[in-house]
Each structure stands twice: as structure tokens, then as C-alpha cells.
Nucleic acid binder design. Structure first.
Lengths: 116, 116
DNA sequence: CTGCATCCGATTAGATACTG
DNA sequence: CAGTATCTAATCGGATGCAG
């Protein structure tokens, strides 16, 4: 893990994942397989159409997800994790594990402080 | 890896790492051990005092790094990765690996496109 | 149903000057 | 040397209206 102040590879990975709803979008797609736009929107309370579209476009442009448009009326668009996108699964899983442990630890510290 | 739309653990981990200079700060501390403020600043071209201070404070408040102030004149403050912070090393390493592979892949795709 | 455009507020980061 | 305060620019995200 060499350090290059001009360019850090960690940030390349971070760049894909950063965005208010990106992790949750990826987790949904990884869990459910192929999901259409409206289902995704329904599954993520609080997200706006604009942000869902924006994040999906970004993930698509990085080839993390596949986007298939069915020329029907009304339109149907289905999203899924691409084969390449699956290479992110281990990383997301590791982040999930660490994050969960971190939150747990924080709450324990909080409990300790309340006792005193 | 369960999905909770109201709270995603991946974002807890992300929250620690996100910030324009945070990954590079962590990598420097992980590589060099104990480093004083001015050395850190010198090692990271482009960072301002304000941002370095801000990010260090945030990492400190999450107990990822230790901060030791020596009451001397001129002042000396040394930063290092905390014992708890070391639990992030594997994750950062994994992100580095993925990011590096991702950038490599992107550049290969670019080369292919130039040939056509 | 899916998606774009526009406007606006909030957050983030950079520049600069100042302090013990 | 290490840190704070202030001002400004850029980016991000939310709300809303419109379109194929």
C-alpha cells in the first residue's frame, strides 16, 4: 500500500461508493438481482427520483450496474449489478462489518458514560 | 449483509473515511507511525492547515487516531493511529486494492477505444 | 413509468489573516 | 508551530414542474 500524495487508490474506490444513496442502492441490487426503477424507488424511502436517477447513471457509467430499457408503454427499465460490479461485493461486505462493529462500540461507550 | 433502508452500516464506515484528505492522512499515519502536524502538512501537498486540522479532529473524535500535545515552545503536537484505528487497516488495504484494479481497468478500456 | 430541467438551501472546501 | 476565524466558491442534495 504505497502512498502517493498526488493520487490515492483508496479514493478511486471511495469515489464509486460516495453519494448519499449509493451504498443502499448497491445493497438492494446485490440482494434482489434485477429490479426496476419504480421498485427501487419504493424500496428506498426518502430518495427522490432525481437522486435515484443520478446515482444509477453514475454507477452505470462506471460499469458497476447494467441498465436495460424495454421499449414498452409504459416504459420499463431494469437495473442489476454487472459482472464487474460483483467484484465490489467483498468490499461492501467488509465495510458493512466494520461499520456495524463501529456503531456497536460507540453505543457501548455511550452506555458506560451514562453509568457515571 | 441485511438491508435496512433507515440505516446502512456501510455508511457508518464510509462516514469515517469520507473527506477530501482523510484517506491520505490515514495512510500516512499508518505508514509512518507517529507524525507531527507540520510533517503531515508537508507530506500532503495542497492541503491547507484548516482542512488538516479539521480532518484530524474528526478522526480523533472517532478515536481512530491519537493526539498528543507537548507543552513546549514552540508547540509540538503528534498524531498517530490509535489501537482501535488499526482495525481500519485491512479495510483501507482492500479499498486500495480494488481502487487500483479499477483504475487499471479503466485505462485499459481507454486504450482499446483509442485503437478503433 | 422513467427521466430531465430548474431553482434553491445546505454542506464542503479553499484563501487569507490573525493568535498564543 | 499549531490552531482559529472569516469570507467566498464550488459541490451536493431536495423540491417541483414538465415530457416522451
Amino acid at each position: 500500500m504505497n502512498i502517493d500524495a498526488n493520487h490515492c487508490s483508496v479514493e478511486d474506490a471511495l469515489g464509486i461508493l460516495v453519494g448519499k444513496w449509493k451504498p443502499i442502492i448497491l445493497l438492494h441490487l446485490m440482494e434482489k438481482g434485477t429490479v426496476r426503477f419504480s421498485d427501487l424507488k419504493r424500496s428506498i424511502p426518502g430518495i427522490t427520483q432525481k437522486m435515484l436517477t443520478k446515482h444509477l447513471r453514475e454507477l452505470e457509467s462506471e460499469e458497476i450496474i447494467d441498465r436495460v430499457v424495454y421499449p414498452e408503454v409504459p416504459p420499463r427499465v431494469e437495473y442489476s449489478i454487472s459482472e464487474y460490479g460483483r467484484t465490489l461485493e467483498d468490499l461492501l461486505h467488509a465495510m458493512h462489518e466494520w461499520g456495524q462493529a463501529h456503531t456497536k462500540r460507540k453505543q457501548q461507550k455511550l452506555q458506560e458514560n451514562l453509568k457515571t
